[in-house]
Write a protein that binds this DNA or RNA. Sequence first.
DNA 1: CCTTAATCGAGACGGTACGTCATGTCTTGGG
DNA 2: CCCAAGACATGACGTACCGTCTCGATTAAGG
Lengths: 202, 202, 202, 202
Amino acid sequence: MSSASRAPGRPLNPAIDDQILNATQDLLIEEGFERLSMDAVARRCGASKATIYRRWPSKTALVVSAAAALLQPPPVPDTGDLREDLLACGLAYMQQEGRTLQVLANLTTATQHDPELREAFREAVSSPYAGLFDAVLGRAAERGLIRPDLDLDTLARVFPAMAYQQLAAQARSLTERDVQRVVDAVLLPALGTNAVPAPTSL
Amino acid sequence: MSSASRAPGRPLNPAIDDQILNATQDLLIEEGFERLSMDAVARRCGASKATIYRRWPSKTALVVSAAAALLQPPPVPDTGDLREDLLACGLAYMQQEGRTLQVLANLTTATQHDPELREAFREAVSSPYAGLFDAVLGRAAERGLIRPDLDLDTLARVFPAMAYQQLAAQARSLTERDVQRVVDAVLLPALGTNAVPAPTSL
Amino acid sequence: MSSASRAPGRPLNPAIDDQILNATQDLLIEEGFERLSMDAVARRCGASKATIYRRWPSKTALVVSAAAALLQPPPVPDTGDLREDLLACGLAYMQQEGRTLQVLANLTTATQHDPELREAFREAVSSPYAGLFDAVLGRAAERGLIRPDLDLDTLARVFPAMAYQQLAAQARSLTERDVQRVVDAVLLPALGTNAVPAPTSL
Amino acid sequence: MSSASRAPGRPLNPAIDDQILNATQDLLIEEGFERLSMDAVARRCGASKATIYRRWPSKTALVVSAAAALLQPPPVPDTGDLREDLLACGLAYMQQEGRTLQVLANLTTATQHDPELREAFREAVSSPYAGLFDAVLGRAAERGLIRPDLDLDTLARVFPAMAYQQLAAQARSLTERDVQRVVDAVLLPALGTNAVPAPTSL
DNA sequence: CCTTAATCGAGACGGTACGTCATGTCTTGGG
DNA sequence: CCCAAGACATGACGTACCGTCTCGATTAAGG
């Protein structure tokens, strides 16, 4: 009555989507974006290239989807302590044994010249992660924990940018120590919070 | 005998180096690393592929050289004012009508899978730019303008990371306003400088 | 009881057979065997590929059926005059605005690598046409119109082979003049018939 | 001075042409036109697909060339005896252990829908073979061995057509006996030669 | 001055991946 | 069980790119 008349014909098998995305994620980690080949994806997941191309129009589009599925940001942390919350946001980038950030770095450049894909990637992957900091900082402002005149948009982008940079430019994977340094040396001081803890002994 | 015995035969024509590098820089800007092809470089500069490969062993190596030639960081600014110096460091990323940062972003991921080239790129291009902030902050510490216990290494990386991120992930070119925001909203507060100026009215 | 127990379920709709065969014949003429695709057949006749494959096991088998349905040889001519009969046999190849011969040519090579289909094609299509000449010549021998020691098997194959050759190798469709030439310049002289008519003035 | 300035750049290596053509001929015989794949040709001759496509624009064009190289008709026979000459013409179709005729049959249909290739094939392969009969019959007419009013064009096409037909439609390879039958049962009688030999005892 | 040796533009070469298309099978929902 | 629609595995097609090699022609240095 209302609507919802399904398209005719055999529907796309959703199980295959997952198999393709899993194979893509694996190869993306193992080989990187350049060396990942569609034939290899097809071979690994037992699907055919036609099946892949029925779902995604290009290699880049497939990889963007795979990344979006791989990189699901956790819920906004709320421990009651601002520092703890910020650390938790940072630790989200270390999920999947660090593969999260790896994939982020690999894809940013690949989507550079396709505005549509870049936007898709940003919406699906980049923004949600940066959004963790947005949320934590915005809540802190609401609660009066930090000064109200701060440029929270800019501050929320500090950690994502630095984590990305560290991996992409220095090929150094992110550690808990790195997260602490950014929070304690940059974010908290910039927020005007007095509660800078005693520096962790090396 | 001891030295100076030049190789026999016709020497490499140094003028061609520049033509190749110029063509590479242009195509790098127009097309990005992936879509830049060696055939296109050769075609554009009127050289042959053999001529290019006689000078650089791979596409990536060529592009790293082109980037290094394109991105000559200016001398460390020393205006006497910390904020002015930091702004000057940031403006260095906007040289060449913004191409400086563009190329930086395009190349960082490309060198991901070749440690040798990544290091070459870092030494020739990335570090010199980040070094501007290192130098300015180190000098400020020496002069006692900022607290001595700050994590200057981390702070020096804030702006490069954010500039890179903005271009690569958001495809938004850098403006003078962006530089001011990072300096005023992040760096100066984190340095504990009281002299935060009144926000520039738009 | 003994027989006639129909298969359970809905029976195959025989009307669809004709639609499929018609579409196949059309495409066979328009595109030839190689470029005829099962999807195109299905699309043109509004059927689905499954419906086609329920009836024929392969593209070649379908096309052989389509050809058999298209090419129904006429009854053996018997005008009382040997030359007239031979001409009538030849004109049979020009039926359907020349498509008869077209399809014959298109299919012969296609069945080369499948003995079963080749045999099916030969029995259903090729032989009946060649059989016209067999019958006319055999009857002439019985009637004593031609010498009894002739190799009628070979002679019966002359016209089919030459018609086929003309179309396949020369892409020249058959004309009434062509039929006359083969009958008058080859068959009748080889049969030892004196009654070679005066050459038709152009 | 005069002319003949070679094209610039590295010339096509003619040895590779032969390797490609040889591999194509082998595969054409082993697999037939349909099942011959460009990758298989490349693999077998150690060349790359790009190298093949630099020389021939399509699979069909390559195979036509391979056929032309494979099927070099022998010189026009001239034994002094018309029957011997005709038999020799027919035997030419049996060269290469029968592969000659096989390839002829395989290709005729393939070139059906590309007029350019069909013409190329006809000129390079089909006509030269049929031309043997043309030459022998024309010479016999000049020498007054046969009646001057015969339709030699049609007669010259009889054997090629029948040989082709036998292979394509009946999948029966040509034997010396087949040649004799066509010459003795069709050609010589049609030429009005009295010297029909005693039938070969079976 | 003339030989030598390496450079130059041009472009062929082997390899590898891309994205498209056709065959024949399988899977939907709906008669 | 049939039917239309269309997904599925397989595998060939023809294109593009990389890095190497091979041409004839040029150009510097050294004997």
